[in-house]
Simulated assay, not measured.
Amino acid sequence: MKALKSYTIPFVGLKVGEHHFDYQIDNTFFQHFEYDEFNAVDVKIDLKLDKKSTLLELLFCAEGVVNVNCDITNEPYDQAINDEFKLVVKFGNEYNDENEDILIIPHGEYEINVAQYIYELIILAVPIKRVHPGIEDGSLQSDILSKLEELSPSEDIKTKSSEDIDPRWNNLKKLLTDK
Rank of each mutant, 00 (worst) to 15 (best):
residue 149 E to H: 13
residue 119 Y to F: 15
residue 149 E to M: 11
residue 147 K to E: 15
residue 118 I to N: 08
residue 103 L to Q: 08
residue 121 L to E: 14
residue 145 L to Q: 03
residue 149 E to Y: 14
residue 115 A to K: 01
residue 145 L to S: 00
residue 101 D to H: 15
residue 119 Y to C: 06
residue 109 E to H: 10
residue 139 S to M: 03
residue 136 E to P: 00
residue 110 Y to W: 07
residue 143 D to K: 15
residue 146 S to Y: 06
residue 117 Y to H: 13
residue 111 E to N: 14
residue 140 L to R: 10
residue 148 L to Y: 07
residue 129 K to I: 00
residue 125 A to I: 06
residue 140 L to G: 08
residue 106 P to M: 06
residue 127 P to K: 03
residue 113 N to W: 09
residue 122 I to C: 11
residue 116 Q to L: 08
residue 121 L to D: 13
residue 124 L to N: 07
residue 104 I to T: 14
residue 149 E to S: 08
residue 117 Y to V: 01
residue 141 Q to I: 11
residue 143 D to N: 09
residue 108 G to Y: 02
residue 139 S to D: 05
residue 120 E to I: 02
residue 119 Y to H: 09
residue 108 G to C: 00
residue 145 L to I: 02
residue 139 S to L: 07
residue 128 I to Y: 07
residue 122 I to Q: 06
residue 140 L to E: 04
residue 137 D to T: 09
residue 142 S to F: 00
residue 105 I to L: 13
residue 117 Y to F: 14
residue 132 H to F: 04
residue 105 I to T: 00
residue 100 E to F: 11
residue 127 P to T: 03
residue 144 I to D: 07
residue 123 I to K: 12
residue 135 I to E: 02
residue 125 A to P: 06
residue 122 I to D: 04
residue 115 A to W: 00
residue 119 Y to Q: 07
residue 106 P to Y: 08
residue 125 A to V: 05
residue 120 E to S: 05
residue 123 I to L: 13
residue 142 S to E: 00
residue 145 L to T: 02
residue 101 D to M: 08
residue 149 E to Q: 14
residue 103 L to K: 12
residue 136 E to M: 10
residue 110 Y to S: 14
residue 136 E to R: 12
residue 126 V to I: 09
residue 144 I to F: 03
residue 116 Q to G: 05
residue 146 S to G: 08
residue 123 I to Y: 10
residue 141 Q to Y: 07
residue 128 I to S: 13
residue 131 V to I: 15
residue 118 I to M: 13
residue 134 G to L: 01
residue 128 I to N: 10
residue 127 P to G: 04
residue 120 E to P: 01
